[in-house]
Design a protein around this nucleic acid. Structure first.
Lengths: 235, 235
DNA sequence: CGCGTTAGTTATAGACTCTAACCGGAGTTA
DNA sequence: TAACTCCGGTTAGAGTCTATAACTAACGCG
């Protein structure tokens, strides 16, 4: 038949080489951003010449998507770990911890974070999986926001998100798995809000737009988390 | 001597061609993002062949910086126009207007906004002027935030920014030109905060990470502006 | 009018993505 | 065990791009 057997040695070798390619590509990303990923360079690094890589990834963009999905998974794991580590703590403290974990991941892998923040090449078309992966990062935040009560200014947003959860069962289930009790509309509002605040702060910091402004991004992040907790009644 | 005279016809022709190059490059950005900017393509479009462009821009990166600076200036103009148009209105309404102007500009020129949001090429090194230009966008916001009183959660951030304004005369002057009365620490805190919130919302929307989530980014933006006004005491 | 600066040309080097055609060996199967 | 079949790897090459070098022609200035 076409493909070699599922657990066969051919398959395992293939998986290992794909991992090595990804590893080399990740180094290139770390050193020069998404644009620095060059199949030529990776091939040289692996002691293999040129087009051999196309046996493993049928295009550069496919390799980049894999990197993006991995980065999302890594970021989600970091946030999830923070959620687990603070399991019993009060909601506000947990939110601070999750936000710090998010920012710390971005500071540890700045170029990877930029990879998530924008399409890397003109030919690149983001596949729908990336949107799902991005959403996976939000999950742990939901579990921290069960007691959130958005204020009147967010009423319109809350209504829209509540409607989304009601009309889309998958969303309702997703919210339910992370926080069984708590209003979906409230929690989704909080998750989207903190996501946008986080991304704004971290993206500006990563790009370097804070340079020369005499403040610590961590202070801004703390202030924003507190502002959310204060404004939306998080204990 | 070396350069032709300041107002001479040579100089004017040169300026015009540079503008045409930038215009073509801007179209490429609009259609495919920063990575789609190709000197070859621009040359073809202008009916000129290849290396002629290097007489006008000594590298692709220099052209990109020019595009970035222009984009910042354009965005700043849009925000400034909104500030002027709402001169007498209450602070909260003005803040809503400025935020909407910011987002509208990004929606009108999504790829240009992405250009501001991240370094476009591996070789690209953002010159310090871009940081200054980015800061120019914040100016109009300062003039709207004179009555802002950040809460206790932002105390650390406020102190840092107040110190920055005190030790750096240029910053103090900058703040003073946009809002003669009002505490610099308070206003800078508000400006940085609203900047990060704006960028977070608009960047996620522009990249397309909200797709499939049943809410209108405008509702999120309104909620965030109201939350800032409520939390930090803006009338 | 003549000199020098400058806009434009072609040729070329170097890097990159990706396709095509072709070996050789390893895994699979009878 | 022997034959068959994929599959990983190779080289060659097309086509794209940035950027440099060397040269030509025209334009403006004094």
């Amino acid at each position: 038949m076409t493909a070699s057997r599922a657990g066969g040695p051919r398959e395992r070798y293939r998986a290992q080489v794909r991992a090595e390619i990804k590893e080399a590509a990740l180094e290139q990303v770390a050193s020069g951003g998404a644009g620095a990923v060059a199949l030529n360079g990776i091939a040289k690094r692996l002691g293999v010449s040129g087009p051999a890589l196309y046996k493993y990834y049928c295009s550069r963009d496919e390799l980049l998507t894999e990197l993006i999905l991995d980065a999302y998974a890594d970021l989600a794991a970091a946030v999830t770990a923070a959620a687990d580590a603070t399991a019993g703590a009060p909601a506000r403290a947990r939110l601070h911890a999750l936000a710090a974990a998010y920012r710390d991941w971005a500071r540890a892998h700045p170029q990877s974070y930029l990879l998530l923040a924008g399409p890397p090449s003109p030919t690149y078309q983001a596949p729908p999986e990336t949107v799902d992966s991005a959403r996976a990062v939000l999950g742990p935040f939901l579990s921290v926001l069960a007691q959130l009560r958005p204020g009147p200014g967010a009423a319109a947003l809350r209504a829209q998100l509540a409607g989304w959860a009601q009309t889309t069962p998958a969303v309702a289930e997703w919210v339910h798995t992370f926080a069984p009790d708590g209003d979906p509309g409230d929690m989704l509002t909080g998750a989207v809000t903190i996501w946008a605040r986080l991304h704004g702060i971290v993206a500006l910091e990563t790009v370097g737009l804070y340079t020369g402004m005499g403040f610590d991004p961590a202070a801004l992040l703390d202030a924003e988390v507190d502002a959310l907790a204060d404004g939306y009644g998080l204990p």
